[in-house]
């Protein structure tokens, strides 16, 4: 098996077009090496080559582009924690990045890798999703032709669930991405920041510090003159599939306990049983989601 380490993006594209189906793309490799201790022999699908894009400068940079903020796919998760733009305008993404795995892993894992793996408990996926981030992907070349660039919503990027077979017959259920290990995620683009925009991330604290959260949740929305214009919640976790909903908070005053009543009614009526994957019963999941929403909005109100 070949190990490719392209220095420039163009080299990577060329290799992709040539390699086609038989080239697997990787960057931080923290997922692959953890779940497949005897990598690469253990992988269920066979590849001729592995292309490591983790050090491509063109993909690791995050910058503002015509008002929108573009996060490079190989930016390390730890770099998002230190990002000033995210701290100011996309608090949910920054908070989610800070709560991802351990410091060692955050220093190695890339944003693209985290999204491509698609864990339900991934804080970063829920945050990017709630923020309305778009994924720019370059697909592999087919039948000798060059690959295409596509831009997808995260809701379009994932399609159902897949079972990943790992060492010792263990199975991991993750989201299934429409792209494969042969397609290259280029960057994530956050919509342009609007005045009055807010966002937050909350996750259920795991019982053990190396465990994954049962529920993670991100909210983004906007407020004008202290009245909420819109608010969107994306929640998922070890215990539930993705929930992507508009919260019924339009025209609700930001300093109102009425928010909590609205949120409670929303969670109480939402059919959590239909997205439950495990853990507590659906009604209890509703209470958990409400608790996390309440915590987040309380912090916003306190500001």
């Amino acid at each position: 098996m070949e190990f490719l380490s392209p220095r420039y993006l163009s080299e990577a594209f060329e290799a992709m077009d040539k390699g086609g189906r038989n080239l697997k793309i990787c960057a931080g490799m923290t997922h692959l090496l953890r779940f497949y201790p005897r990598f690469p022999e253990e992988l269920t699908s066979k590849f001729d080559g592995l292309m490591h894009v983790g050090d491509l400068a063109a993909l690791s940079e995050s910058r503002e582009e015509s008002g929108k903020y573009s996060i490079g796919s190989t930016a390390r998760i730890s770099s998002l924690v230190e990002d000033d733009y995210l701290a100011r305008y996309a608090a949910a993404v920054r908070e989610a990045a800070a709560l991802t795995s351990t410091p060692q892993i955050r220093n190695r894992r890339t944003v693209g890798g985290e999204v491509a793996w698609g864990s339900y408990h991934s804080p970063l996926v829920s945050a990017l999703w709630a923020m309305g981030a778009k994924v720019k992907v370059r697909t592999r070349g087919k039948n000798g032709s060059a690959g295409q660039e596509e831009t997808l919503d995260l809701a379009q990027f994932y399609r159902g669930t897949q079972k990943r077979l790992a060492a010792e017959g263990k199975e991991h259920e993750t989201r299934s991405a429409v792209t494969g290990g042969q397609d290259l995620i280029l960057r994530f683009v956050l919509p342009a920041h609007q005045p009055g925009q807010f966002s937050f991330f909350r996750g259920l604290i795991p019982k053990i510090h190396t465990e994954n959260s049962g529920v993670v949740l991100s909210v983004s929305g906007s407020v004008q003159n202290n009245v909420i214009e819109r608010a969107r919640v994306v929640a998922s976790g070890v215990w539930m599939d993705t929930m992507d909903e508009e919260l019924p908070l339009q025209a609700v005053r930001m300093n109102d306990t009425y928010i909590f009543e609205k949120l409670y009614t929303f969670c109480d009526r939402y059919n959590f049983d239909s997205i439950r994957r495990g853990g507590p019963p659906g009604s209890q999941l509703g209470l958990i989601v409400f608790g996390l929403l309440k915590e987040g909005f309380s912090t916003l109100l306190a500001r």
Partner: peptide, 9 residues
């Protein structure tokens, strides 16, 4: 205990 999420500290 968190009254809603059930988290125990």
């Amino acid at each position: 205990f968190h009254p809603l999420t059930g988290e125990l500290r």
